[in-house]
Design a protein around this nucleic acid. Structure first.
Lengths: 356, 356
DNA sequence: AGATTATTTGTTTTCGAAAACTTCTAACTA
DNA sequence: TAGTTAGAAGTTTTCGAAAACAAATAATCT
């Protein structure tokens, strides 16, 4: 039942030497069409597949890129990894994925795991500080690293989305709409991306001499968005804009607004960040910043592979973002069907009257 | 810069034989504490990591489970894989992940890739028909398979959520609320899970002698939910319940209702399926069926590993589901703050009046 | 003490595939 | 026609780690 088919069995069945089998599995160069066909048939017949371990052992180049990522249930992380996978395959590389968190100890375990697979490079897709990133590069200098969303000051290969510019463009739009009273719902402060967004917002608010009324922090989850938004909406100080650091928290925030009968965007505008698959269908659809996750993954692979060949300087790349304006901030819309809406509202009032 | 450190260098540095190094890396049984320490230091000093390829080659057992999954950007798929990963690790196995779609040709490529890594078993986490699943098991009989969400008639190892029962419980709840006019927004018909849910709904509607007014199909995405729901809401026949086959489509459907000023749940109740992370924060929060994805992954691993040892009969397991009732279907709530709500509605009407 | 048993370490062989090298045959050139 | 060359296939060696086997040393028992 077990015992995988090997080389020799194929060679025997086809009546050739093992080396000829090897030639066939590696493209069939220098093998007569006749023999090639015979060997191919033997391979199919026996269901032979070359043993990766043996190949890995004997070849100097493994053609594998290693990836260390956050838990893949997170939207952004998994999209980036998907981009990496596709681009690696295009380049003739396979991808080996390890899941870890940002704890240095776990990161090192993950690196060792990948090293043991003889990967040619390691892409790190989780929040890492400047210090840790530089330390890792120094410690494992036999293998090139590339970091996604590491502080730009870090002297390491990196690809990042333009968080600062994205956040800046968002608040620029809000200011242009005449909004002045801001609440910020930031990401966790250990995240570099979250800090950039926060900085952009704080700087722009100061520059515009607008009011930063509330400044809180969630953990990226819809739940935390809901909890924090609920709390801040209950405070006496009134705001006109709620800037949220990602779409999931924004979903929770929208829910909180709805529960407290606060009209979005009429009373408060709410914005997100990421443009996840669903934010177009939130109630109301969410104004947000699109990060092209797949592009980030793609560039990460391309950069590290050229680095493997040319071994140049440190490469730092920033992927542009895009502002997506939707109804959660659109105030100046003509409401063509207002009559119908008023009718509906009256109906709703009628329904509620018995309760009073 | 490249050239990984090997065995011998460590042995030389520590002044022992290579076999002793091997003993140390494998737990250090039967090595004097003194020697062990010396070898460990040499390992750390050189940054030695055993070559997985060589290990794979020489050991008969690889201790790897292979997983073939849909693109990981999908909520459910990635949660299942996360469950598999955690459980494999607990059992001392590593997990090798390959992404594929349901095309037989791509599936076979994925299987070969995993076989080449000497995996001990293959878990398939994507929709596969009875025929294809049985064919694969027959063709690759040297390696045990387990399918997640394959038709239960298929004579293969399987773990599935109880889709039929989940859908049945959902419509049972709706009928108990006195709802009679149903619209179904199903998943794609090539999906086994989608078919089970549809069957449950159709059967129960017939049994209860309720009306099945509309019956359409989406592709699981929020976008398709929005498009299909918009179309069906514009039809002249009125419905009181919209059963949607997953949460993402339900999100799109909720958006469609909102755009057309249809109150959920007062005018139409909307239900989902899956209980994704966010559906608790939809507007309104979504009544849905919770599938415990991590549990599915966990059971899949446990079943296939016991199968490896005992090699018994085919194992078929069904994971129970849970009905989560939220506001998208709750009609009988006391509206304590009706006065406040009416005030808000009047305000909204005032705002709209200039447009008329 | 002598013999038996454990403990610790070393030596040899093995795994499967491919690279490096070799041999054989057929084709082409002068 | 002999000699050179290219194409096709075979043989040998190699990769790194671990298993199988063997030996040497230390510990225990009678």
């Amino acid at each position: 039942m077990s015992k995988p088919v090997t080389f020799k069995e194929v060679a025997e069945l086809a009546g050739v030497s093992t080396q000829t089998v090897s030639r066939v599995t590696n493209g069939g160069k220098g093998v007569k069409p006749d023999t090639l066909k015979r060997v191919q048939e033997a391979i199919d017949e026996l269901g032979y597949v070359p043993n990766k371990g043996a190949q890995l052992l004997v070849r100097k180049k493994a053609k594998i890129v290693g990836v260390i990522s956050l838990e893949m249930t997170l939207q952004g992380a998994s999209s980036i990894v998907a981009g990496i996978r596709v681009e690696s395959e295009k380049a003739g590389y396979s991808m080996s994925l390890t899941v870890s968190d940002s704890k240095e100890e776990n990161l090192e375990t993950a690196i060792k795991e990948l090293k043991s697979q003889q990967v040619e490079a390691i892409l790190i897709n989780l929040p890492v500080s400047k210090e840790v990133s530089e330390k890792l590069v120094e410690k494992y200098k036999r293998i090139p690293f590339l970091f996604i969303d590491v502080p730009s000051e870090a002297k390491v290969n990196q690809v990042s989305a333009d968080h600062y510019e994205g956040a800046r463009r968002m608040i620029e739009l809000m200011l242009a709409q005449g909004r002045r009273k801001f609440a910020l719902l930031n990401g966790p402060s250990h995240s570099h991306a979250a800090n950039l967004r926060r900085q952009a917002w704080e700087n722009e608010i100061k520059k515009a001499d607008a009011e930063l009324i509330i400044n809180v922090e969630g953990d990226w989850s819809a739940e935390s968005g809901y909890i924090e938004a609920t709390k801040l909406l209950l405070k006496p100080q009134k705001i006109d804009t709620l800037l949220v650091a990602n779409d999931q928290m924004a979903l929770g925030a929208l829910r909180a607004c709805n529960e407290q009968n606060i009209a979005v965007p009429q009373q408060i505008a709410v914005t997100g960040f990421d443009d996840t698959l669903n934010s177009e269908y939130f109630n109301p659809p969410l104004t947000t910043i699109r990060q092209d996750f797949k592009e980030i993954g793609k560039q990460a692979v391309q950069n590290i592979l050229t680095h493997l060949v040319h071994k140049e300087e440190i490469s730092k790349q920033v992927i542009p973002i895009e502002l997506i304006e939707r109804q959660s901030t659109m105030i100046v819309q003509k409401e063509a069907n207002s009559v119908k809406k008023i009718e509906d509202l009256l109906q709703e009032i009628q329904r509620l009257l018995p309760n009073v």
